[in-house]
């Protein structure tokens, strides 16, 4: 079969070139035309020709479906305290704006002294998890007693994220890495989807960066007890769920201390929707409608 030229985008496929429009194309198809004869049914495009899909062109074209997020998680929060680190996020993965998957664990335990939480594309996070799983397996196979601490996992993830950015196919995630360094100090850092990264006493990824960080800045103390830290975290989660429509009132808090990683059962915070301004949101707004 002669590969036929088609009328429009060869990747999209179906397109019909009517006879008499393109002389060069008519010449190329002359033999097929002679064989097939003129169109016989009224339903077939009377003056057009059959088309072929250009599979080669489709192969050559870059994949673009990985370049927009589809199923996403929103904020992930991290907070250091006296002798450990907390990670918190809700259990929701949205399909666009639809609250599609309500029971997703958005925190992953990497090893006994490191856990990560994500925002952004769920499937990309699964991929990141697979990479980390491979890393752990490799360490296990070496059998020399070495495991990666939080700092190394963090550095590794920045390398992964930046490498994918350089391929113009970034992993659509921001990650929060929490854990302990080899010397026993606590560690908390965040990695953006293009490899941007920083460490701090409290970090947030996603929309929570705007909502929870101010609360952390106000209430963070280096020597907080676990109870105090959880209290700060709950107030931050409350602030997030009240303001972020992609957030759900079902949270998990993950704790990393020298005793290991524990991920809590899901819980909810009491919310309050009875404020007057919620009933009539445009009342005091000049630009509302």
């Amino acid at each position: 079969m002669i590969p036929r030229r088609v009328a429009h985008n060869p990747i999209i496929g179906p397109g019909v070139v009517p006879r008499g429009v393109d002389a060069e194309y008519d010449a190329a198809c002359a033999r097929d035309d002679a064989r097939d004869g003129p169109a016989t049914t009224t339903h077939a495009p009377a003056s057009g020709r059959a088309f072929t899909l250009d599979g080669k062109a489709r192969e050559k074209a870059p994949t673009t479906r990985t370049q927009t997020p589809y199923v996403t998680g929103t904020s992930a929060l991290g907070l250091k305290y006296g002798d450990g680190v907390l990670l918190a996020c809700d259990t929701l993965a949205c399909y666009g704006s639809t609250k599609r998957y309500k029971n997703v664990e958005r925190v992953k335990k990497v090893n006994e002294r490191c856990a990560i939480a994500f925002t952004g594309e769920l499937s990309d996070f699964t991929y990141v998890c697979n990479l980390l799983e491979e890393l752990t397996t490799e360490d296990f196979c070496e059998d020399d007693g070495m495991t990666r601490d939080a700092e190394e996992i963090y550095q590794y993830l920045t390398r992964v994220m930046y490498n994918r950015r350089n391929k113009f196919d970034p992993l659509w995630n921001s990650l929060v890495v929490a854990g302990l360094k080899t010397n026993g100090e606590t560690f908390l850092g965040t990695v953006g989807m293009i490899g941007t990264h920083y460490e701090d006493d409290h970090v947030c990824a996603g929309f929570g960066n705007h909502i929870a960080r101010p609360i952390f800045r106000e209430f963070y103390k280096a020597d907080m007890t676990e109870e105090q830290a959880v209290e700060v975290m709950r107030s931050a989660l409350y602030a997030c769920v009240m303001r972020d429509k992609q957030m759900m009132n079902k949270f998990q808090i993950c704790k990393v201390t020298k005793d290991g990683v524990t991920i809590s059962e899901p819980f909810a915070v009491p919310t309050e929707w009875g404020y007057e301004k919620f009933y009539n949101p445009t009342k005091f707004s000049e630009t509302g409608w």
């Binding site: 020399d144 007693g145 963090y154």
Partner: peptide
């Protein structure tokens, strides 16, 4: 050092 931000440990190098 590039990937993990830390000097390689002797056991890994020997391996």
């Amino acid at each position: 050092e590039f990937v993990y931000g830390r000097s390689a440990c002797p056991g890994r190098l020997a391996a």
